[in-house]
Design a protein around this nucleic acid. Sequence first.
DNA 1: AGATTTTAAGTGTATATGCAAATAACAACC
DNA 2: GGTTGTTATTTGCATATACACTTAAAATCT
Lengths: 151, 151
Amino acid sequence: MTNPEANATIDDVAAECIAVRLRMVNRVVTNIYDDALRPLGVKVSQMNILVATAKLGPVRPAEMCKRLHLDVSTLSRNVERMRARGWIEIVPDDDGRAQPFQLSREGENLLQEALPAWSRAQEQVRTLLGPRFVNELNRATKRVRETTAKQ
Amino acid sequence: MTNPEANATIDDVAAECIAVRLRMVNRVVTNIYDDALRPLGVKVSQMNILVATAKLGPVRPAEMCKRLHLDVSTLSRNVERMRARGWIEIVPDDDGRAQPFQLSREGENLLQEALPAWSRAQEQVRTLLGPRFVNELNRATKRVRETTAKQ
DNA sequence: AGATTTTAAGTGTATATGCAAATAACAACC
DNA sequence: GGTTGTTATTTGCATATACACTTAAAATCT
């Protein structure tokens, strides 16, 4: 029952839980992109950050985290791994606390080389989930961006 | 451009990548459920498995993994953690390789106690994402279940 | 200017996740 | 019935993720 008056049951959770479904689809989709990107030695999680970095130019971790709704400590480790691989580089900043980073030449090369694999995965996933899901995902994403500011 | 003839660009990835959006929404939603469940000392990832275990009765890891599209090694560790907490118990099986498990009494108690927190998170997420997204997620989930059998 | 508060980022710890390889038990084949 | 192959699960390793806490630097306040 979706009746808010009634108390939920374990069966309701099994039948309706949004997190169950979303997390399952997320696993399947992530694996499809990761499979396609494997020959390039990059995972979709890092490609996401690299693409966002390409778009934002030199950007501070905190700013990136707001955009991606990512915890700063998570980004910190990801940045370190990608820096170690030479895909991003730290740039100086007037504020001594800040550690802005940007895409390196190698990072841009990697992205260029990854585009065909990305396209294949993207098409595979679009076919799997259907265009209506993708449309609703876009709307939901906008709503999330507007609603939860993620200090 | 969504034109399959043309080569994708980095801007296309930033503007269209399904994985970026899905993973972001997944992070936000997981955090909402985890926040609600924190007082109970369980995360939504484990609650998912507990609920599936409640529904399936004694179940083998491989069978559970097919249902949830989870890697067997991932489930193996999750089961170990939940067994250590007393929420599930291993049951004997004729096949010496199999390690079927079921919900324990304590596991069922935990689920019962977690229901109100789950309901709050579920409503919060439904409001955030909108009913149309939830509908499409359900359709997409069915398609994933039918399409990718996940050996 | 000096003390306090706020902000930016990194560290410690824990869970979640998946691939590759190892292990163990069953099944099939000759 | 012993060898070979298959299946079920676990382990080793690496990344992704977040919370709590720490550290360092800037901003504010008096």
